[in-house]
Design a binder for these strands. Structure first.
Lengths: 232, 232
DNA sequence: CGAATCCTTGAGAGATGTCAAGCATGGTGG
DNA sequence: CCACCATGCTTGACATCTCTCAAGGATTCG
């Protein structure tokens, strides 16, 4: 999509020099932790979430290889969110001061990071609109499509059928529903003929109708990066 | 908070060279408009929103002087959101290519823009958690506090009493509720002794309890910008 | 094999939406 | 200056959606 210069490649690789493994279920960062590190997710899937006073949890985002984690430590002394591994993972930690030099020395990479932030922002606002204004069934359908599409970006083999890798409680925490109601909505999607399920695998039987039910928009499409600074 | 060099000041001022007035209710950008412009809001308050298939609206964010508008045109050919004036406004348009040169020539400003994006992100995730996991009453309380705090950033005179400047329908579109239910929640907050209302003015009678009811976090506090590149 | 998790289903409760009507307010044209 | 209209607010009755609680079945892991 954008061709990086060798120097830019090296700068990005320097962010990924160190590796840290993380066990399934392990927390990389907890809310209110003090940290000045950021991370690149290299392998596995993670999620970021917040806990509310009453003990309920809201999942903000699912994270996939290539995503930057804990960018908020650029700004906040204490982390506003918890970051947890959904599968065994490998992350690459780097100090936020590395971000300062990267911005100074590689303006085009700085611009690309802004682009990345905007894509993430669009995904968050889509979820916001879903929580505010769509039905439980639509929200569950949206999560299914989102997960399939992100998984497919890592593995081109994935088609209409994939392993979701989320419990119904996690789907509920992402969609603002209870696990019980998620279960009912999955069954309804099945009865509507939109999906099939077996042993943790989901199969889309009518992807078009599912996307329509979910109000789904692909935020990795429709990009226009022609304004980027030229390679220096 | 951060002291800018004269050159940095000039660079920011260049973004605000031109002015465009906007009437109350007018749209600066509509969803799916093609635009390559961005804006700085100079005067007035605005909102950004999306429309769903069924005609319902979700307000994503309220915008105040100093905010950057339409940053998504850095990324998307077509705008993912509508931006509308809540009061008479003045905006300063600039081409997104100006952003490219600003990033190249002023790394510290680029870093500050990233900081700004992260603050906005935190505000969005707070709203997300509110929509997903808090009661109608809490969401309405949260909007009241948010509006008061942002208005107070422009006008230090504002204390416990302020003019909200939103219709109950707009509060509903921001909180994912119907206007009717917003009305009932406002009444309840009043009966609980947390607020008083008259002629569009809201007065906080028990701000601490209100903030508690709303799960409110001030995202403009707790910043740590010590990592920023040094002034060059 | 036993103990956790996770999933599934039912019944009833609670929160929020829908519809409908009336009231208040402010702006506007006659 | 007044009558009228559009907009927004308020309230009640009822419908619908989602949650809560509870129980049992399935699956995985040690």
């Amino acid at each position: 999509m954008v061709i990086l210069t060798p120097a830019e490649h090296r700068a990005l690789e320097r962010l990924e020099e160190r590796e840290r493994p993380l066990r399934r279920g392990g927390a990389l960062i907890r809310e209110n932790d003090r940290t000045t590190e950021m991370f690149v997710l290299r392998r596995g899937t993670m999620m970021s979430s917040v806990l509310l006073d009453d003990g309920s949890r809201q999942i903000l985002r699912f994270l996939f290889p290539g995503d930057m984690l804990a960018v908020s430590s650029l700004v906040y002394r204490e982390s506003p969110e918890t970051i947890t591994a959904l599968t065994d993972c490998v992350v690459c930690p780097f100090e936020r001061s590395a971000m300062a030099s990267l911005i100074r020395d590689h303006p085009r990479l700085a611009a690309l990071i802004m682009v990345y932030n905007q894509i993430e922002r669009a995904a968050l606002t889509d979820r916001l609109a879903a929580l505010g204004r769509t039905s439980a069934k639509a929200r569950v359908a949206a999560i299914l499509i989102e997960m399939r599409n992100r998984l497919r970006m890592m593995d081109k083999e994935i088609g209409a059928s994939f392993t979701l890798g989320l419990t119904q409680e996690e789907i509920g925490d992402a969609t603002g529903l209870t696990a019980v109601h998620v279960n009912r909505m999955l069954r309804q999607l099945e009865e509507d003929g939109l999906i099939a399920r077996e042993a943790g695998r989901v199969t889309f039987h009518n992807e078009r109708a599912l996307a329509r039910a979910a109000n789904y928009v692909d935020r990795y499409a429709g990009l226009d990066l022609s304004w980027l600074p030229s390679a220096s």
